[in-house]
Nucleic acid binder design. Structure first.
Lengths: 261, 261
DNA sequence: GCTTGACCTTGACGCTGCGTCAACCCTTCA
DNA sequence: TGAAGGGTTGACGCAGCGTCAAGGTCAAGC
């Protein structure tokens, strides 16, 4: 006859776990010896091993009792459910691993590699680290909102980096972020002019930034808001752009009638 | 500005979860508006998404805060730990799946396929279902004790089935299990004679059942006990074997001086 | 016979990551 | 004007045990 500790050791669990199974009625309480100790026979070992086998497979304890009592076909059905659940779980963990792997690589954190690549390009062309971080945070929002489509945006974005005006824009913005001149920094105007010029060209040539996308103002408002939260001078930029006939910041919209041009 | 519900929706979680993160200090409490509602900016969205990314990878909430604050190398180190943890977890689930698959197949439940095959062979030679179940339970114990070695036993066991005496023995035991004649069933003697004969031969020819295995009386006692618990007449069998000079049931041991021969 | 240490007993609280009331307040819209 | 659909705090519930606490027992050695 076994004590609870021996029983538990045999099945590779703790005595506490065995008591727990008694409490919830999963394993029947055995006889007690003269001093009140639980005494187990071999059948309890077998029962306990069966319980652990199912529990290890992720079956909730509350279902294991019914499963062990069920007839063959019910049991088989339950097994199918468990197996598909395990498959799902494994898949979930594997996607997690992929994310984590990217995360290890650089600033990723839930960003697809294309975006990471774009951020690295920014670094290469001399964009300051803080500016890159601001961009990254923006892309985190975009990736969260359109996880399927974010990769599609990137080739276009990369191509835009060939435009020296954009490079200059990033350069000016980098300087701005690093300095703290306040709202009357003249570079704000330079940046606004660059943006307006590029927007104008894109507009007349018929390309619009995030083109046909189901328009979802909230998300872009959020992006604009993010910029302002990161650096209050972004608000000033928004105003300057508005003077030049554009609303919004991350997604530019032609104003019906430029108020001040 | 976002309400808690909008923030939560953006990151794909519930408002309750966000409040939880506030409670444990993982996400800072935002400003409140005039009516006491929490109001969130875009940075909160980014922070929340980062939190979820790590949480989905299985990082405990209690560590996420430190990770997000840590410097790059500490972070990378943590990521490595997480990744290896994920690998382990995936592996665990995959072994579970294998077990579950066998479990679906037949009477398995934590039994390697070789043992299942052996049990099927028993059915083919006409061993009764209840007897097979008794065998199965025994093998569950064996597999729990020597998970690495149990497969090695099986070829030998299968080979033994070629001995017509063993087949006869199983036949007699099957009949015994199905009947309930009590301790004076003459078939008990026949079974004991068969076992003793085979044991004698194995002994003189130098083969001993579980040969050189680190002897572990407890486990075999447990197997004997299992038999007795399944059918009390097994105790009678043990006595009859003892009369014939053998101790034990699942592992036979020559007695020093046969007490009654 | 006494101590020591390793077991056993019940009972109770702790942990994670929220879900789910309850009881109430705010805002908005028909 | 009232009903719907947000928000607020506070509290308990859940699984599957871990981990005390406060004892009672058992086997061994002195």
């Amino acid at each position: 006859m076994l004590t609870i500790g021996q029983l538990a050791a045999y099945a590779g669990v703790t005595a506490r776990a065995v008591r727990h199974y008694h409490q919830i009625g999963l394993l029947p309480e055995p006889e007690r010896d003269a001093s009140g100790y639980r005494r187990y026979g071999a059948k309890a070992v077998v029962a306990l091993i069966k319980i652990r086998t199912l529990a290890n497979a992720g079956v909730p304890l509350s279902q294991i009792g019914q499963m062990l009592e069920a007839d063959a076909s019910t049991f088989a059905e339950a097994v199918r459910r468990i197996d598909s659940h395990l498959r799902d779980e494994i898949e979930r963990l594997e996607t997690s691993r992929e994310q984590i792997a990217q995360l290890a690589a650089g600033d990723s954190l839930a960003l697809p590699p294309e975006v990471v690549f774009y951020l690295d390009r920014l670094r290469e062309i001399g964009v300051s680290e803080r500016m890159v971080e601001a961009e990254r945070d923006g892309w985190i929002l975009v990736a969260a909102r359109w996880p399927e489509r974010v990769r599609e945006f990137m080739p276009g974005k990369l191509a835009q980096l060939d435009d020296p005006r954009l490079v200059r824009l990033y350069e000016v913005l980098s300087e701005l972020v690093e300095s703290d001149e306040g709202d009357d920094d003249p570079r704000l105007r330079e940046a606004a002019d660059l943006m307006a010029g590029m927007a104008e060209q894109a507009y007349t040539s018929g390309e619009i930034n995030f083109g046909e996308m189901a328009y979802d103002d909230l998300s872009f408002d959020l992006l604009d808001a993010l910029a302002v939260e990161s650096d209050p001078r972004a608000q000033r930029m928004l105003d300057l752009m508005r003077e030049r006939g554009w609303a919004g910041w991350t997604r530019l919209k032609r104003l019906a009638e430029p108020p001040d041009s």
